[in-house]
């Protein structure tokens, strides 16, 4: 299958969706959004791209590239919980830091944000893996 229009669109859609997903991820603390929704958006972008350019090397390359994301996501999510313990509070305790950056100004970094980023990565990893494996037209066994 060689859908030129879809391929043209998919290049744009992938970039737009990933940028949008990052935006949704970071506004998630106080407004609608968050790691899960962001992860779904980004994963959707990647899946659309793979569907448009479907071939085996691309599919397995995407799978391989995204494989560490699940583990990284879990580590971040678990780590954000453990950070609370390390600072002498209970598990999953929210900690906040203010960081001064040049150009941007002061931003808040918090353990809920780290947790959300972890969820974001885990959702991308799992969702893309599930869809691509189901899509693959090779025998599994």
């Amino acid at each position: 299958m060689n859908a030129i229009l879809l391929q043209l669109a998919a290049r744009v859609i992938r970039v737009v969706m990933i940028i949008a997903s990052v935006f949704v991820l970071f506004r998630g603390h106080n407004q609608p959004g968050g790691g899960f929704i962001g992860g779904l958006l980004a994963g959707g972008g990647i899946v659309v791209y793979v569907i448009a350019f479907y071939n085996h090397p691309l599919l397995s390359k995407t799978l391989r590239a995204l494989a560490p994301m699940r583990v990284i996501g879990l580590i971040l999510a678990l780590g954000s919980g453990i950070l609370g313990v390390l600072f002498g509070e209970s598990f999953l305790h929210a900690l906040w830091w203010k960081i001064e950056l040049p150009l941007i100004g002061a931003i808040d970094i918090s353990t809920p944000l780290i947790f959300d980023v972890g969820v974001y990565f885990a959702v991308i990893g799992v969702m893309v893996m599930v869809i691509l494996l189901l899509m693959e037209d090779r025998k599994w066994s």
Binding site: R70, V71, L74, I75, L78, G81, I82, F91
Partner: peptide, 13 residues
């Protein structure tokens, strides 16, 4: 809860 989760991550990685 944390220990098995930690080992899930370990075994997967």
């Amino acid at each position: 809860i944390i220990i098995p989760l930690l080992f899930i991550i370990l075994s997967l990685s």
